[in-house]
Amino acid sequence: MRWPWSTMWRPVRRRRRGGGVELRWLTARSWTQRWYPQGIDVGERRGNRALAVSWFRQDASGRHLASRVALVDRARARRLDIVLAVTDDDGVLQPAPIHAGGLAWFGDRLFAAATGQGIWEFDLGALRRVHGTDAQRVRGGRGRRERRTAVVAVRTRRHPVALRCSFLGRAFDADGTPLPRVLIGEYRGEETGTVGEFTIPDGPDGTFVEVERFEPGIRHMQGAVRWGDRYFVSQSDHLRPGVLWSGPRHALTRHPVALPVGCEDLALDPDDELLWTLGEHPWRRVVRGIPFVSLGLRLPGGSTGPRT
């Protein structure tokens, strides 16, 4: 895979599981309590397909320090970390202070859910490489063991949305055609949140335009995507396997396929016919691709399983 700064790639373990795919981290990120994985989507960069997984960093008190996105090469099961950053009033790069609970990847445009702060947009076509104290600062670290180089994606726009913006997912037609739309939803504890469908901004002055919204009546929603008239919603359940809900938006039912413990965001992958999700809890972290056939989804004239 031809990427800039290829020496920064780090391996990920990949294996088949129940007709699907499972990726596991092969470093301390499998158990660290400083970084937590959150959002996921599938995209392409320089002709190569990759998974994008967002992470946020916090200190021992729970204070937010930084956010990043790991691009996982689907062909080789390796990853490249990209730090998310903003430019302050003096033109200095600072860590993006967002939870990044969901991702939507359109070409070089990467949208991230910024809980309580709308949707933030980053440009993957203009990555920067920074060194020394700049690299340490955008990573939110000052320790001697912090790497001295970082690849950075800088925020280009901040889009206001009249929702809490806890997570973010894509929408597709029933034939697998990607739509210029996203589902934006709210994680709530004791209450149930709202999911809204929006068109993505068209051009530099565009905005997220709401098409419709609904309340699934589900607590602890973590992600939502749409395939034709069928919706999929993930629900976390503490240290128990997550729950997948599916069906028409006003008639979602619990699906028998279980999600990982500490499940988070969802992403549809029509090319490999997989529904991707991930788990956030230390020692239980996994990125899992669930085959469409297990969900009753099938592309017109398509295969009966993933092509990985």
Results as ranks from 00 to 15, higher is better:
290 I>H: 02
200 I>L: 12
298 R>Q: 09
185 G>W: 04
33 Q>T: 15
38 Q>M: 15
162 A>Y: 03
9 W>A: 14
108 D>G: 12
240 R>M: 14
235 Q>R: 14
253 T>H: 09
203 G>R: 05
2 R>G: 14
157 R>F: 08
25 W>V: 04
271 D>W: 06
250 H>S: 08
247 G>I: 06
258 A>K: 11
178 P>T: 10
300 P>L: 07
165 C>V: 13
252 L>F: 05
63 R>M: 13
289 G>L: 05
130 V>K: 13
283 W>I: 07
150 A>R: 05
55 W>L: 08
114 A>P: 10
221 M>C: 15
12 V>W: 05
33 Q>W: 09
178 P>N: 11
3 W>N: 10
130 V>L: 15
74 R>I: 13
232 F>Y: 13
304 T>A: 15
278 L>F: 00
6 S>A: 15
131 H>M: 13
24 R>M: 02
174 A>H: 03
7 T>C: 10
39 G>T: 11
40 I>A: 02
204 P>Y: 08
125 G>W: 13
223 G>A: 14
49 R>G: 07
137 R>M: 11
81 D>H: 10
251 A>V: 02
117 Q>T: 02
64 H>R: 14
236 S>W: 04
153 A>G: 07
110 L>P: 02
263 C>Y: 01
113 A>I: 06
183 L>H: 11
14 R>G: 03
229 D>G: 11
